[in-house]
């Protein structure tokens, strides 16, 4: 497919409790094969999806959080995180998993995928997309 569009996946829900986060991740993984320009945004309770040290044994759910760390290998290198959503939940960027990618244009240097954004920046980010999928 020659046409390339800007896709933004908006993750708004906690990782467990509902299936939205898991099934959103499945779309991102499948979508990666289509060679589109892909961005992820974590907002509201969605920021909990990438909190580090998740342990799901007690709720007998599959811990799918390691998959986010692999997204860099699928050329998903931009993970926007809402500053306000972190603050409202008493979180900082240090509470998040270190999500990185290897930049092939920069001698495969390891770079941060996480980009903190405020509300205005999120509005601008959405404005520039062709497709916004919210989960």
């Amino acid at each position: 497919m020659s046409e390339s569009k800007k896709f933004l996946y908006v993750n708004r829900k906690a990782p467990y409790g509902t299936v939205y986060a898991l099934e959103s991740l499945e779309v991102v993984l499948i979508g990666a094969a289509f060679e589109q320009d892909v961005q992820l945004l974590f907002v509201d309770d969605g920021v909990f999806q990438i909190v580090k040290g998740q342990d799901t044994k007690g709720i007998e759910m599959k811990n799918f959080s390691p998959t986010y760390s692999a997204l860099g290998d699928y050329e998903v290198t931009k993970m926007y995180v809402s500053k306000e959503s972190l603050e409202e939940r008493g979180l900082t960027v240090d509470d998040l998993m270190p999500l990185t990618y290897e930049d092939e244009d920069d001698d495969w240097a390891e770079k941060d995928s996480i980009i903190l954004v405020n509300k205005d920046e999120i509005a601008a980010l959405m404005e520039e997309q062709d497709v916004v999928l919210s989960f």
Partner: peptide, 21 residues
Amino acid sequence: SGLGQLIEGGIQSDRLVVFGD
């Protein structure tokens, strides 16, 4: 069918409209 059909929908359409919570 598979999730690729959703992505293709996003690529081929002028607008993708999501209905849900």
